[in-house]
Design a protein around this nucleic acid. Structure first.
Lengths: 247, 247
DNA sequence: TAGTGGTCTAGACCACGAT
DNA sequence: TCGTGGTCTAGACCACTAC
């Protein structure tokens, strides 16, 4: 990495800095390597620390860097491909999905957008199942699954001994219905405090929010709100995993 | 919106500020309404302007606010749903898709990740078609479509009079092949200068990058890299548009 | 020209992880 | 305890829009 001063270009310093750093990452750093600390880097490029941080933030957003307080800034590995619909046309919790049940609770108030998707009445009882997804030992996503109590009459509360046990019971009850279809949205969000903790990130970290609606019996039967780390994940759809294309 | 001082809470000021502002937006502001300017808002909440801006940036990321230099900060409308695979199993440029051809060029160097997906040899000629997507009169996405020249022998360069004409000619040549499948990834990125201009945003603005690979004849035949504004768009997949569910 | 958001500075202190 | 990134301040100037 050079130590040259930045030119007086019309583009913002942090933007130019980001480009320079990005090239340095490609050519002079290996994955996992630690960068010099922010104060040194700023001095080396002749900018204020805040300006340097603006460049680092962009690179972290793009998944190029990983910063940890008290530790340092390291070069991030390429984003992990995470299949979103590899087990298409199956309920959440079907054999082979990559999610771990965490716990479940019952609630009579759900977020407004979820209630709209589920077409539930205000005050209607809804199971809220929390799950988490781990790949390569690292947490990549947190999920809240909403299932109206009326949709899973087979749910056996008596069998719910542990917290994950309650979650599994709800998921088990779901499998008994015939899944007719699903639809999905993806949008950018920022991690709520709760999700951030589960994802090992700070609150406000950028996340990809995947909202899936499951339909059976002509009615929406479950809504999953899955929160993926945007810095480390790339969501994959369709057949890329299954297809036997070379490369 | 209140003018109360912030408590000395353990959570960061900008985070608390974001929550307060978010609630104020819900209860006291209408879509399109302009907020007080940043200097006034900062004074009102007793924080430095930089701290206030950190909160505004988060809210803009979440699509709650829209900021324009020289104009002000306004309350953003809800995100627009944008169908990503409504015309599933058709080539780009098929009748009914929402994209406008802009221009086309030929290149012998494509980004490394695109070359890998296309399985092209270094130096191989590739058509690069630029398209843009507009909904409700606003630009929501920019796209670069890569098609190896060898895959579209029917492409008629002689018919290419205007820039959009060249683009249409490549797309037309694509339709003559049988599409066998497609796969797709979605990840977070930041707008390159070129895309930012087309999307009416500043460089570095957060975008959702959708990479679609089209397969025909057992080989990857086209790769589309579509860049959607992350602040104003929600991507929809599957049947939500088509299904006749109430709500 | 006036007012807005965008960039940048040079400091300060805090929270966290490793030692 | 020390070094790291995270937060915050109080200014300054710039680029852009609208009038």
């Amino acid at each position: 990495m050079g130590t040259t001063q930045l030119d007086t270009v019309p583009e913002p310093k942090y933007w130019h800095l980001k480009t320079v750093l990005s090239q340095a990452l490609d050519s002079e750093f290996a994955v996992g390597e630690v960068l010099p600390n922010e104060r040194d880097l700023a001095a080396r490029f002749g900018v204020a620390r805040a300006t340097l941080r603006q460049a680092l933030e962009q690179l972290e957003l793009e998944g190029r860097l990983q910063r940890r307080r008290g530790v340092g800034t390291t070069v991030a590995p390429p984003r992990a491909d995470v299949a979103v619909d590899s087990v298409r046309h199956t309920w959440p919790g079907a054999p082979g999905d990559d999610w771990q049940p965490v716990d479940a609770a019952e609630s009579d108030t759900v977020p407004a957008d979820v209630a709209r998707l589920l077409e539930t009445a205000p005050g209607e009882q809804v199971h809220v199942v929390r799950r988490s997804r781990v790949t390569d030992g690292r947490p990549v996503a947190a999920e809240l699954l909403y299932v109206p109590a009326a949709a899973v009459p087979g749910y056996d509360a008596a069998a719910a001994l542990s917290a994950p046990g309650r979650a599994r019971a709800v998921l088990r009850a779901l499998q008994e219905r015939e899944l007719e279809g699903q639809d999905r949205t993806v949008e950018l969000g920022s991690a709520r405090a709760e999700d951030a903790k589960q994802l090992d990130r700070l609150p406000g970290a950028p996340v990809l929010v995947v909202t899936t609606r499951y339909v059976s019996g002509g009615r929406p039967t479950a809504v999953a709100v899955s929160t993926y780390r945007a810095d480390t994940c790339r969501l994959t759809f369709g057949e890329r995993d299954a297809m036997a294309l070379a490369g």
